[in-house]
């Protein structure tokens, strides 16, 4: 029983990380219908910037909380600038291009960012400075750490914050309008360029937060860490219904739990025929199943085909 509980905790935490990254995907997609494949790399840059800044401050003898906070702020600032730059350089010139073009550009930017990071931070694995509290808890035989609790809380709060932003603020209203029809929105006096840039900047800031969370959870970082993470988060976003904030959260958590349970029990269920290396297959079977019956994802709203 405590094993099941432990697996659920593992899945919940892993899923919250996916969700946090997936929010960034879904933000941009909801407004522009663009999948920003470079988002995983933004997360990676966030982690690496934190390592550099917090590591340096810790070396200078600053208290852990201060160094960690400064690291987080620096990461958020760098990633916001990066998100803005990406949109300005790679996507805005292609705003009216066919759908495939920005997608390819996104993959291109992802590769560029990976290689820039490799040149700046090197090929080696980096250890993430210990800026998160180390406390460990036991609950009904399952153990978890303070960082894990923090990850779950941060992603839930971030999602709530985003919902408030989208549905309760002027910027949010402009975003929703742009999402529905950019031309009409701009006729109504919405500065579409600024709204889209804002979506990128906010999404990237979330990416930075996700990066810090991932870093303090696994305590390692590498210039290619964003790729798989991005892919999984993208899957989570599709599972939940891409473009939908609550869907990204639900999809992420669901994917994490499916993976954990899959890895934990697939061997027993199939009598050892399939091992834990089939955990991804488990997750993708669920994804295919969901898409067959609810093509726009779990929370995706049905929309009619529009010319």
């Amino acid at each position: 029983m405590e094993i099941l509980l432990q697996q659920l905790i593992n899945g919940l935490v892993q899923g919250s990380i996916y969700a946090l990254v997936a929010l960034g995907y879904t933000m941009v997609y909801g407004i522009m219908g663009l999948i920003n494949f470079a988002h995983g790399e933004v997360v990676m840059i966030g982690t690496l910037v934190t390592i550099s800044v917090a590591g340096l401050l810790l070396k200078l003898g600053l208290p852990v909380a201060l160094a960690g906070g400064a690291g987080l702020l620096a990461a958020v600032a760098v990633c916001m600038a990066l998100g803005w730059g990406l949109e300005r350089i790679a996507y805005r010139p292609l705003r009216n291009a066919p759908r495939l073009t920005p997608l390819i550009t996104a993959i291109g930017m992802s590769i560029v960012l990976q290689n820039v990071a490799m040149l700046v931070w090197g090929r080696n694995y980096l250890t993430f400075p210990a800026i998160a509290p180390k406390a460990q808890f036991e609950f009904a035989g399952a153990s978890f750490t303070a960082v894990q609790v923090m990850i779950v809380l941060v992603s839930a709060l971030t999602m709530a914050g985003l919902l408030v932003l989208i549905y309760r603020t002027r910027l949010g209203m402009a975003m929703r309008a742009t999402s529905q029809n950019p031309q009409v929105a701009s006729l109504m006096g919405v500065n579409v360029n600024r709204v889209i840039a804002a979506a990128f900047v906010i999404g990237s800031a979330l990416g930075a937060v996700a990066g810090v969370m991932v870093g303090s959870y696994y305590e390692i970082a590498h210039y290619q860490m964003g790729f798989m993470l991005g892919l999984k988060a993208f899957t989570a976003a599709v599972l939940g219904g891409i473009g939908n904030l609550a869907g990204a959260m639900a999809g992420g958590v669901l994917l994490g739990i499916i993976e954990a349970l899959g890895a934990g029990y697939i061997g027993d269920l199939t009598g050892g025929f399939l091992g834990s290396h089939y955990q991804d297959i488990f997750a993708f079977i669920v994804l295919i199943g969901v898409l067959m019956f609810r093509p726009s994802g779990l929370f995706g709203e049905k929309t009619g085909d529009r010319a």
Binding site: Y29, G30, G33, I35, R99, G243, P295, T303, D305, R306
Partner: peptide, 13 residues
Amino acid sequence: MRFVPLKLSLSAL
């Protein structure tokens, strides 16, 4: 927020 029609989102995927 708007969701792109399902055909598009699937082919995009």
